[in-house]
Design a protein around this nucleic acid. Sequence first.
DNA 1: ATATCTATTATGTATGCACATAACAGACTG
DNA 2: CAGTCTGTTATGTGCATACATAATAGATAT
Lengths: 217, 217
Amino acid sequence: MNELETTSWRSIHLELLRRINERQWPPGSLLPNEADLAAEFGCARTTVNRAMRELADAGLVDRRRRAGTRVMLLPISRVVLDIPIIRLEVEQRHAQWRYTLLERQVCLAPGRITSRLGIERDTPMLHLTSMHFADNHPFLHEDRWINPAAVPGIEAVDFFTVSANEWLIQNAPYTGGDIAFSAMNADRALAELLAAPDGAAVFVVDRITWNKTEPIT
Amino acid sequence: MNELETTSWRSIHLELLRRINERQWPPGSLLPNEADLAAEFGCARTTVNRAMRELADAGLVDRRRRAGTRVMLLPISRVVLDIPIIRLEVEQRHAQWRYTLLERQVCLAPGRITSRLGIERDTPMLHLTSMHFADNHPFLHEDRWINPAAVPGIEAVDFFTVSANEWLIQNAPYTGGDIAFSAMNADRALAELLAAPDGAAVFVVDRITWNKTEPIT
DNA sequence: ATATCTATTATGTATGCACATAACAGACTG
DNA sequence: CAGTCTGTTATGTGCATACATAATAGATAT
């Protein structure tokens, strides 16, 4: 058999990947079990387990107890993207970051927001809107609804100097959330803020975590 | 000490998560080493290792040999999204999927494409454009450039019955790629195809793998 | 025939041990 | 003083073993 020289989980992982890619184990087929593979590669089952777990994490195979491991019918292409702090995003492009607070107001949120957050309609919410600039060109419009009850100490924060984006990331630990992307046409007010033609297409990121939503361009 | 009842890596993972979220280990601080934590929890170092590795995979801590494990300064919020087959995406919404091939042509690709793919300008490329419908409403416009040299057998495929999206996923194993999202205004031709007003904002997914690119709405 | 119990099987996980490796600190040396 | 050689430390990984658990197939009982 094609014994591998090294018996690291990495090399085994690569070998399994190769066999899957080359259709030696076509989509839908059952892989040998861990014990057999361990015997073939001359290593411990733990090592094969690690390699196969990695494949499962990547969405390439489906593993079930007793049923064994089989190649996914349709390889899921899985994308991981990191959402950075806006300031860093700008600075990474070697541009100068500037930030302006446009509005800060405690008021009732529209039903569209409260329902998405699963909050009582009459909860007072903190509404922040602001602009981020890169080298003085409009970069991003931030529109955020925050439930003050969920973030102690937020009433006292002066968002003129710190962006909400950054303050929340640093001070409001969150454990889960949801995110959606879409495209829409900018209305007149937004277009003006972004110095773009009326009706221009803007990219919208809609986020909801523990306690906040933020439309963005 | 707050001894945990169970010593599964999951429970330890949760406990570590809790301490990080509650700022018991604030951002930037150094965590105890694996051996100490193992002693505290009364388990093997391997188990702690597994729990901490998970934290590192999630981007919450930074681990380096000899340096130890420290909490990331800015918690990276990491999003994982799965790119499904379009047909399944439509069918998951309980809509009927229909597909039409608009164009199939072997020709030279514009420089914009060849340069992104790192291919010679004069390579003949297969250009496919098609529409996907959900319940007869335009759902997605697919515009794809394929390097036939990279996908053996593609010349013979009849894309009237199978969508390129699906055929490629099933028959062209790929090992890596890149993806980008953006928004743009639809031009007249595209707007017509999508039965949308001229200039409407469309969501664009730009993918490049081994050998293909696909703008989309 | 249907329901229930009982292996059987493959993966999941915990443990103790050993050694590998990256990175750094401090001693040694020319 | 610069350069090199040692430890030392914390994580990374491999192994053998054991037991846990999900899921199924087959046997048994009603």
